[in-house]
Simulated scan of single mutants.
Amino acid sequence: MSFISVFSHDPPLLILGIQTRASGNSKDTVANIRRSGEFVVHMVDIAIAKKMIFTGINLPSDVDEIQASGLTSVSSVKVAPPRIQVSPCAMECRVL
């Protein structure tokens, strides 16, 4: 299970809670954030909920979960990781 919580809006801060895999290993999300220091958090509406749940499946690290789910990624504005085109809200983040 993973979750986010908005901590502050001025300055904008959010907190991530990302559990390890059942094996105790870190999820790809954690490895990617540690490597780049950047990430995008998406809000989900009912229209894309099933596809977003699919992105959380434990797939091999070389599989693009966004593409495999049938969603489309586009360039973000402020960070290098892409965002999901149809997400109603994409929060582009940097680790502080």
Rank of each mutant, 00 (worst) to 15 (best):
N58L: 12
S87E: 10
S23F: 12
S23M: 08
N32V: 02
I84F: 11
E92Y: 05
I48E: 08
F54V: 08
P81Q: 02
F54Y: 15
P11W: 00
I66Q: 05
M1W: 03
F7L: 15
P60W: 05
R35T: 15
T55D: 10
P81H: 03
P60F: 06
T29N: 04
A90W: 08
S8G: 00
G56A: 11
P88F: 05
D62K: 07
D10K: 13
G17T: 00
G24Y: 03
A22S: 06
V44K: 00
D45I: 01
A68R: 14
R21F: 07
A90C: 15
R83T: 13
V44I: 11
D10Q: 12
R21L: 12
V40S: 08
R35H: 14
V95Y: 02
E38P: 12
A68Y: 12
T20D: 14
M91C: 03
S87N: 07
F3C: 07
T55Y: 12
P11Q: 00
I53H: 08
D62P: 03
D45T: 02
S23P: 09
P12G: 03
R21K: 13
S26E: 14
H9Q: 09
S23Y: 07
L14N: 00
S26G: 10
I66M: 09
M43Y: 11
I48C: 07
D62H: 13
T72M: 13
L59S: 15
Q67H: 09
E38I: 11
